[in-house]
Design a protein around this nucleic acid. Structure first.
Lengths: 234, 234
DNA sequence: ACGTATAAGCTAATAGGTATAGCCTCGCAC
DNA sequence: GTGCGAGGCTATACCTATTAGCTTATACGT
């Protein structure tokens, strides 16, 4: 019998298709094999198992998402960049729900390749926020807010969580606008501060820490060789 | 041999424990049965199968979450209520990750019981936002923003997505404060409007629709008996 | 108290999924 | 052309869900 001529890459590509069609949790080797014209055990010649396949899928998906971010933010800054990143990501997630789901997975901290893919997303998101001139922890808080809002909206939407007839696109517009606006006054005033309306120096100690050496050090890549906190986020 | 004396309720309660311990996706009947002192097939006398069990789990979890919202918002309003709801939910989700995950599931639109549980969450969240005096689509957009932000943060945190050493509690404080603040100027200005700085009447057509009959009708529960859009939302 | 219907438990068997072992052979390198 | 490694296969084992059909504890009516 002629060989199917599979490669790891081919297997992962088909797995992406399947994941997009039936959802990441329903991606099985059993479903994948016939689509590639082989029997199930043959897949083990190319991927080490279902877990390894999921890992490869995640890495590729994270790279794609980083790309989506990068293209959206290219040539834009501030609110424009944020808005573009949010819309582009939602559109990509709609077209590729399985891949999007794969981007959420937290990497094993010792897995350099997947950690790198995660970091690419973080770095590009941070770059997209550059115009807001945030630094240190404030910048991290902001990307976390960005990722959380975006992910929450997309995953609820994909889960069918927005059941009311009200227009979901409209809601997304509002969320996007709110987020882009929020970053212009970041960090936000806390409730206590809003009520007490005192001078910002006194009432917003968080600002003091903004560019502190400690905060900057925490961000820097210069850490011990086997850092217990390899740099990954969101 | 003596009977184990199971009930559906007992099974679901133990399932909650398991889900909290090992994660909702890892909840299996096989793991559950020995913990209840019976063989796997015996569980079918009390629940119709793993899917039915998940459904029951979701319903209970949604009721619990609605309760968490209600308790948090009780006696508070506006930013205070929003803040309290967010913190309480995150704390509950941390203590009960499996149950929290179960709240995300979208109900089958024909499943009255689960739809009702979902609606309870929505209603209480809307009530928590009452002080902001939003109406019609604006109110729906706001709860969606609330749920999306909250869910995004919690699910990323639970997935281990916040790998950087930066303090996650601090980030959550910021996100919370930003959200509570955002609702005071809802709907947010779009990027175009912020740039063009014209009068709000002209530049913010969305406000015109706020209390329109159409918008109100869309929200109302008065719909045809077998409504294609039973009232549910994130 | 007793007898019985029913519900609650059991064993056994089936159907899918993951994974490993071990064989067979295509097809490239030389 | 031949040798051999990579890529495919069958067979098998194990895990989870589910169904069928049996047994018996126990609640309840008399």
């Amino acid at each position: 019998m002629p060989r199917a001529g599979l490669t790891t890459q081919r297997v992962v590509e088909e797995a992406e298709q399947v994941a997009d069609e039936v959802g990441l949790p329903n991606l099985t080797l059993a479903a994948l094999a016939p689509r590639l014209g082989v029997r199930m055990p043959s897949l083990y010649k190319h991927v080490a198992g279902i877990d390894a396949l999921r890992r490869l899928l995640s890495i590729r998906a994270k790279q794609e998402l980083a790309d989506v971010f990068a293209r959206a933010a290219a040539g834009r800054a501030g609110a424009q960049a944020v808005t573009a990143m949010l819309y582009a990501t939602r559109a990509w997630a709609k077209a590729h729900p399985g891949r999007y789901a794969a981007t959420v997975r937290a990497p094993d901290p010792t897995d350099d390749e997947e950690v790198a893919a995660s970091n690419a997303i973080l770095d590009i998101a941070l770059a997209g926020l550059a115009e807001y001139r945030l630094a240190g922890d404030d910048a991290i808080d902001a990307v976390r807010a960005l990722r959380a809002t975006l992910h929450g909206f997309i995953s609820l939407e994909q889960a069918g969580g927005f059941g009311l007839p009200n227009d979901v696109d409209r809601s997304f517009d509002r969320v996007t606008a709110a987020l882009a606006e929020t970053f212009t006054a970041w960090p936000p005033k806390t409730e206590r501060e809003r009520v007490a309306k005192v001078s910002s120096t006194l009432s917003r100690p968080s600002r003091r820490d903004r560019n502190s050496p400690a905060a900057t050090a925490r961000r820097s890549g210069a850490r011990a060789a086997r850092d217990p906190h390899p740099r990954t986020d969101g």
